Computed example of a mutant assay.
Amino acid sequence: MSFNRLFPFACFALLGLASCSKESDSNGAESSKLEVRLMDAPGDFRSVVLDVRQIEVHLKKEKDAEKLRLLTFTPQAINVLDYVNGKSALLVSEDFAPGDLDEVRLLLGPNSYVIGRDGQRYDLKTPSGQSSGVKLKLDKASLRERETFQLLLDFDVAKSIKERGNWKSGDDKKERYLLKPVIRVVAQDLRAGIRGTVSPAAALPQILAIRSTVLGPDTVSTSADASGAYQINGLAAGTYRVEFFPSTTAPTTLPAYRNNVRTGVVVTNDNVTDLGTTSQN
């Protein structure tokens, strides 16, 4: 997945991540996890680069400023055409208090642009997005304890970028296109997971499920119980590397416990992937 430049502006701050790699304990207390992903409906351009500066999350039925959460992130410029045909980019993944969300507000900067089929760059004017932000209403977006909730932003290039009717070759390139974002929001609980057992159970390993994202590794962890069983819930679909780290040492009469890594673990929506038994010897 490529970005145009990593960048002074960026990451669809969609509900920003306080750090690029975040570890969440699946046995952790009263918190949820909120993810925001971006995908795109193709358009007739070589590149469509959005300059996204910040995101606010509005809590349900709360209008005072204290109930508007500005999420921490590093702005980026992102080429949305990198995420078409089923691809999506994980932009934000962070712990979030359970509750109802009412609205996501996306603030765009002045540096969005397209590369046309002619190879020329055309700046995008964003009359509705620069000041008050692009408001995305949410319907039935409820975060529950110890579950992951995902907001998928489906950016429609063809509907979002409008050519001025009176523009002609030789006119100022900055005046050719307007950006009026049309974004469909799909909100869903994530019910996928990974489970299995370790042998011997006495190794009591910590288990990390790691997925690569545009923000860096996204890591979720748990520990095997006394019977050797483990399960990590609330995962997004994707390919994971699962790492096992014994938390104890083996008796001197037995083989030493060792770290283990399972790669290419595919997790699909609403399904729990069973890894069977993983050896710690």
Rank of each mutant, 00 (worst) to 15 (best):
residue 77 A to E: 08
residue 122 Y to P: 01
residue 184 R to V: 00
residue 198 V to T: 12
residue 154 D to H: 11
residue 2 S to Q: 10
residue 215 L to N: 06
residue 3 F to W: 06
residue 217 P to R: 06
residue 261 V to A: 04
residue 254 L to Y: 01
residue 145 E to V: 04
residue 274 D to M: 02
residue 91 L to W: 11
residue 147 E to T: 11
residue 20 C to D: 13
residue 36 V to W: 07
residue 163 E to A: 08
residue 27 N to H: 06
residue 257 Y to I: 09
residue 260 N to E: 08
residue 42 P to R: 04
residue 226 A to Q: 10
residue 190 L to M: 13
residue 267 V to W: 01
residue 200 P to Y: 00
residue 10 A to W: 11
residue 272 V to N: 08
residue 92 V to T: 10
residue 266 V to G: 02
residue 17 L to I: 06
residue 252 T to D: 13
residue 84 V to C: 15
residue 206 Q to A: 12
residue 239 T to H: 03
residue 249 T to Q: 03
residue 46 R to A: 04
residue 142 S to C: 05
residue 41 A to S: 09
residue 22 K to H: 01
residue 256 A to D: 09
residue 83 Y to K: 02
residue 76 Q to V: 13
residue 108 L to Q: 08
residue 281 N to L: 11
residue 44 D to S: 15
residue 255 P to L: 10
residue 205 P to M: 14
residue 159 K to A: 13
residue 232 I to F: 08
residue 263 T to Y: 08
residue 69 R to W: 11
residue 139 D to V: 02
residue 79 N to G: 04
residue 85 N to S: 15
residue 220 V to T: 08
residue 178 L to S: 05
residue 281 N to V: 11
residue 145 E to T: 11
residue 260 N to I: 02
residue 229 A to I: 11
residue 259 N to S: 05
residue 66 E to R: 09
residue 211 R to P: 02
